[in-house]
Amino acid sequence: MIGNLPFVACAVLIILGLYTLIFKRNLIKIVIGLNLVQCGVNLFLITLGYKSDSIAPIYTMAGKEEMVLPTPQALTLTSIVIGLATTALILSFAILIYKHYKTADASKVRRLRG
């Protein structure tokens, strides 16, 4: 019934992020697009390792059952923290650019440079 809907959702999130990155010119909006791409990638990694009718990769009960694949989860864990750190760095650049040029529009900033 569900088919490949989760993969399609990841693709839609990444496409929305790419659209924002290409066509929007506000700096904060560009960072929002970057964040959406990151959300899509995280969801894709988790979805890739999901196995139906299985439990989380934590040994709690005595009997061993099927577990979902643990490696994508470990990669996603580092990816989330890195994403927050880079987002903060880019937003700091945006604040400084606004203070310097008095505009948050990327194309205007490019024009003012020369």
Binding site: V81, A85, I95
Partner: peptide
């Protein structure tokens, strides 16, 4: 490392906003 890093990032950003308003 993570708690100190993320906490100082958010404190530094608040500091940057505040300094920007005074100018």
């Amino acid at each position: 490392k993570v708690l100190a890093g993320l906490g100082s990032i958010i404190l530094l950003m608040a500091y940057g906003i505040k300094k920007g308003d005074e100018k």
